[in-house]
Design a protein around this nucleic acid. Structure first.
Length: 861
RNA sequence: GGGUGCUUAGCUCAGUGGUAGAGCGCUUCGUUUACACCGAAGAUGUCGGGGGUUCGAAACCCUCAGCGCCCACCA
């Protein structure tokens, strides 16, 4: 603390302080973690930012909360580390780059795989750099020099290692399966990449066979009948019992197909008879396996009919649907048509194309055993989900997870490390292994979540036993939105537990909600209600945005955000700026020891007491991820207690005496408060704090500590008394239409203990002492205030006011009396409540008496 | 269909058993040398409906009604 009390600009301009500060922090190396330090580690994983090249409001929220925790922990003496990354393999990235290519007039197929991947890298360099800049503006304290891309050597090694490990343990297998296929993206999609919506369709009932040997099936996808291998009914369905095991004619293709019995069929749905298209429907696939029904593929990868040997070959699947129905109609085989028929249809979450179930050879992860471990880790309390009410969602998913299809027919991503020999040998390669001549690698790449799941340890150097890994794994807390619980969080759990010998990747999963617009609507581009965090930072400053986001962040709950909110936060920052400037102008200092508590006046004692309460509560709230409540608490302490009361009550001291003790106390309170706020509003607090204290940086300052010895009830109740007198007198002045600035003669008649503070009150209330004959008076508790109002007072206003108070007091009295005369209450209510009610009875009785006297004393109208 | 959450002041939300809270907005007054991005004073609620438990319910239980999110193979 060398050069305190440097000057502050008279106006607060966020833009002027924010940019230079970030440079300062980076240059000083505050954010660089040291794996060899003996401090306790605190580690946070950063989810990969989105791929569009600009900071999304959701990431701004996430980053603010994470950074607040990191900054707090650093101040508490932890060795802190983010695990940053720009990973996003997969289709989203590929799509963005492809779009650019299309705009330039060529496709990725012209380029070839290698050139295309190069293009993606170029693009990621640019967009990644842009995002990085934007995050820095937000004030995050990430050491981005540690950032690693999924595709770089370190992570490739991790991917190869885990794949082989899983394969050798029997957790990865290849199988023919019905998968979700997007005929537009030409790729397989995992279950979670498919979005279901209720769409309009047609429910057609078609008669198969003729005469006695006919059966009517109902379907929403008539075109798939070309690939039917059977008709299924429920084994106990009396309508069809006789027909089971016989065959019927499949129209259009004129093939005889068997009628089979399977429990899966719901006899009450449709006609109770289902066509079985083994290669194009997941349910049918399962039945087909049980009953040996052939898999007949009738569509190619583009969703075009192919290989049926009918006139429909070459038609798009939707055209074929219409054509098939038309033809069947012609043949008189349509028994019923229900239209529109609303039913759930799967769509590609990227391009919205209707999903086509498709028979395909894919790689899978057998998740059941892994997911069991992931669920157990939470059940056993080794990993905590905050807030707890979101845990059922996690279990719901982890306990019912389907096997995970991990192969993707993309070019951008980790190539599946499987090689096929000339005679269909299958070889899985680990790091530094080479396939023999004549082997070729699987063309598919891995699902993006496969590599993302490795984040908590691959970024630390795994599979090497690095110093980082030893020190910083498992990570302390994962802060992320609940929407990504299934995509990312659960998968990190799966792989973390597996790869790290049962040690889960994080100790706590702290979930926040989504950011919505001010009407509570989910933000989306089509609604054009998206909020651009950059614009808000331009207009109001990064601190204001951070404070707004943190203040709205109740655990696991969505928050709304609107420009007014951010504006209000900026106002708060300005308030803080001005308060600190005022304090410094009046000589607030951090030099020398804090005076002994007993030597301080009650006002100083009170603010120290409130400060310690605030620190204790805010600290524990931040430690439990209750950002909103912590912010609220700090906000009210700073604005209400410090600015509105303490500074106002201290003005008289500053004006009339040298107020040495108060200057020191004020310096102390601001110093501590700025430390407390630094995690949420790093820029302004840094500027104010360095000016006030001359310290090097809040980033490396210590965290404020609540002082138990500062807690002071008598001082608190004395100040509460002062506050109620001041408020009452102000109210009286206001009701009487006396200007705030007007000085009026007035004096207090008060108990001795208030004597030292009457001057401060008079100063605040603009009361002038002197000889006068009182023309009006107020009684507030034990304090009497006499005024000389030149001219008459507004009796009507005052009477109305007193009447109102009287009514309220009488009501309170009645409530208290009812309770006290209730025998059950007296018998069963706890002592504490009893005393409280009795006190209330006493005070309201006194109030009524006092008000009645005052009313009587008023001149009659 | 399964899971889960929400319903409190005009708006957005806190509040988990003891006299209903905050921010913004609103009304009135005010440029008193920190701050008009401000200050002072003020108004505003059958706490979604209905039952129950309790001396006492916004809070706990049941039920109904709306809204939302996630998951899901209904042909």
């Amino acid at each position: 603390m060398s050069q305190p009390n440097r000057e502050l600009a008279s106006t607060f301009t966020p833009a002027e302080i924010e940019a230079p500060l970030y440079e300062k922090w980076i240059a000083a190396g505050y954010f660089t973690p040291d794996a060899n330090s003996n401090k306790e580690p605190f580690t946070i994983v950063i989810p990969p930012p989105n791929v569009t090249g600009s900071l999304h409001i959701g990431h701004a929220l996430e980053h603010t909360l994470q950074d607040a925790l990191i900054r707090m922990k650093r101040m508490k003496g932890f060795e802190t580390l983010w695990l940053p990354g720009m990973d996003h393999a997969g289709i989203a990235t590929q799509n963005v780059v492809e779009k650019q290519l299309t705009a330039q007039g060529f496709s990725r197929h012209d380029l070839g795989r290698e050139e295309f991947v190069k293009k993606v890298w170029e693009w990621k360099g640019e967009s990644g750099g842009a995002i990085l800049e934007q995050m820095r503006r937000l004030g995050d304290s990430v050491d981005w020099s540690r950032e690693r891309f999924t595709m770089d050597a370190g992570l490739s090694t991790a991917v190869l290692t885990i794949f082989k490990k899983l394969y050798d343990a029997g957790f990865i297998y290849r199988a023919e399966r019905i998968i979700n296929w997007c005929p537009c993206c030409l790729t397989a999609l995992s279950d979670i990449e498919v979005e279901h919506s209720d769409d309009e369709g047609e429910f057609v009932s078609v008669r198969y066979g003729d005469g006695d040997m006919s059966i009517t099936v109902a379907t929403t996808r008539p075109e798939t009948m070309l690939g039917d291998g059977a008709v299924a009914v429920h084994p106990d369905d009396p309508r069809y019992k006789e027909m089971i095991g016989k065959t019927v004619l499949l129209p259009l293709v004129n093939r005889m197909i068997p009628i089979i019995a399977d429990e899966l069929v719901d006899p009450d749905f449709g006609t109770g008879a289902v066509k079985v298209t083994a290669a194009h429907d997941p349910n049918d696939f399962e039945m087909a396996i049980r009953h040996n029904v052939p898999f007949i593929v009738i569509m190619n990868e583009y969703g075009v009919m192919a290989g049926t040997g009918t006139e429909f070959d070459g038609m798009d699947r939707f055209d074929a649907r219409i054509a098939v129905v038309a033809k069947l109609k012609e043949m008189g085989r349509i028994v019923a048509q229900k239209r529109p028929y609303i039913h759930a249809v799967g769509h590609c979450s990227r391009c919205d194309t209707t999903i086509e179930p498709r028979l395909s050879k894919q790689w899978f992860v057998k998740v059941a055993p892994l997911a069991k471990a992931a669920g157990d880790a939470v059940r056993a309390g080794r990993v905590k989900i905050e807030p707890e009410f979101l845990a059922p969602r996690y279990f719901e998913w982890v306990d019912n997870m389907h096997d995970w299809c991990i192969s993707r027919q993309l070019w951008w991503g980790h190539r599946i490390p499987v090689w096929y020999g000339p005679d269909d040998e299958v070889l899985v390669l680990g790091p530094n292994e080479k396939a023999p001549d004549g082997y070729s690698q699987d063309p598919d790449v891995l699902d993006t979540w496969f590599s993302s799941a490795l984040w908590p340890f691959s970024t630390l150097g795994w599979p090497d036993e690095s110093a980082d890994l030893k020190k910083f794994y498992p990570t302390s807390v994962l802060v992320t939105g609940y929407d990504i619980l299934f995509f990312w969080v659960a998968r990190m759990m799966l792989f973390g537990l597996f790869a790290m010998d049962g040690v889960p990747p994080f100790r706590v999963i702290a979930l926040h909600g989504l950011v919505r617009d001010k009407f509570g609507k989910k933000m989306s581009k089509s609604r054009s209600n998206t909020i651009d965090p950059l614009e808000f930072m331009d207009r109001y400053g990064a601190d204001a945005l951070r404070f707004s986001l943190a203040r709205g962040a109740n655990p696991g709950t969505d928050q709304t955000l609107a420009e007014e909110w951010v504006g209000a936060s900026r106002n708060f920052a300005t308030k803080l700026w001005n308060a600190t400037r005022f304090a410094m102008m009046n000589g607030a200092t951090v030099e020398g020891p804090l005076p002994a508590i007993e030597s301080l006046n009650a006002i100083d004692q009170w603010i120290l007491s409130r400060l310690s309460q605030t620190i204790a509560q805010a600290d524990s709230l931040l430690e439990s991820y209750e950002f909103a409540r912590a912010c609220d608490l700090i906000y009210h302490f700073a604005w209400d207690d410090l600015c509105d009361w303490y500074l106002e009550l201290s003005k008289e001291s500053f004006a009339k005496s040298d107020a040495v003790a108060t200057k020191r106390v004020l310096g102390y309170v601001l110093d501590q408060l700025l430390r407390l706020m630094h995690p949420i509003m790093p820029f302004i607090t840094e500027t104010l704090w360095t000016s006030l204290t001359g310290g090097e940086s809040l980033v490396i300052a210590s965290w404020p500590v609540a002082q138990k010895t500062h807690l002071n009830k008598p001082a608190a109740s004395l100040v509460a008394q002062l506050q109620s007198v001041i408020t009452e007198v102000r109210r009286f002045r206001s009701d009487q239409g006396i200007k705030t600035s007007a000085k009026i003669p007035g004096r207090f008649i008060a108990p001795d203990q208030l004597a030292p503070y009457l001057g401060a009150m008079a100063f605040l209330l603009k009361l002038e002492s002197g000889d006068f004959t009182p023309s009006a008076q107020l009684e507030i508790g034990a304090v009497k205030v006499e005024f000389d109002l030149v001219g008459t007072i507004d009796v009507v206003a005052e009477r109305a006011r007193l009447q109102k108070d009287l009514v309220a007091a009488e009501k309170d009295l009645a409530t208290a009396k009812v309770k006290l005369s209730n025998e059950s209450f007296m018998a069963k209510a706890p002592e504490k409540v009893l005393i409280e009610i009795k006190e209330r009875l006493a005070t309201t009785t006194a109030d009524i008496e006092r008000i009645t006297v005052q009313l009587a004393a008023l001149p009659s109208p």
